[in-house]
Design a protein around this nucleic acid. Structure first.
Lengths: 102, 102
DNA sequence: GTAATTTTGTACATTATTTGTCAAGACATA
DNA sequence: TATGTCTTGACAAATAATGTACAAAATTAC
């Protein structure tokens, strides 16, 4: 739960209450509590809002959040998963360079 | 759709009909058609059955299938996604070596 | 060509998963 | 004890995924 952990860390560091956070996101505070513990997933828009509110780079939070999405998608043996991740990564890396070439 | 493509390739190579495949999996042939085109996702058990039926390694098909799960989990910008995938991969690679140490 | 077979597309009903809400409980502090 | 913060569990609501039926295309065989 990279995202959840980071979120709590940032909130505590800034001495903020969950209630304030949930107000910013306009969600129930119980739900926020769950998000912060990784029991529920934040929406992409939430991640963006949080980044602004906490003065961190959107990119940073979105990356952690995306990592969690990937972890969540693991549904095989860790060997197979690792292997597959490597392949998936290579695919994307390539996509990256292709786009840069244009 | 690495898995779907591979599946079709194998079926055609072995001169099999979708109907036969769907019979093996005990599913509707329309559904099988969708799976083969990546419009629906196969279940893990299906992948395993297919590997046996088509005489290919379980691991091979499961890997492709898992790659698709990852692709499916991409929900950010490709730059962020690539970055996140790298991080996720590193996490898993590490998990791998940890287990080997035991 | 056309009949038979195979595959695809679409619209839905069904099922499963995820999400969000609420109220009660735990814990700390004053 | 009273107050504020956070967690938890049960459950309804919303959303997403799955599977089915059947018509339309496409392909193959005759």
């Amino acid at each position: 739960m990279l995202f959840a952990n980071k979120l709590r860390q940032l909130r505590v560091k800034n001495d903020l209450r969950q209630r304030q956070m949930s107000a910013v996101l306009e969600i129930d505070s119980g739900l926020y509590s769950k998000i912060e513990r990784g029991e529920r997933r934040a929406k992409k828009e939430h991640v963006v809002k949080l980044a602004h509110f906490l003065h961190v780079e959107e990119k940073e939070l979105l990356t952690l959040w995306q990592v969690d999405q990937f972890s969540n998608a693991v549904s095989t043996d860790y060997r197979i998963a690792t292997n597959a991740m490597q392949i998936a990564y290579d695919q994307y890396k390539q996509l990256n360079t292709q786009k840069h070439e244009k």
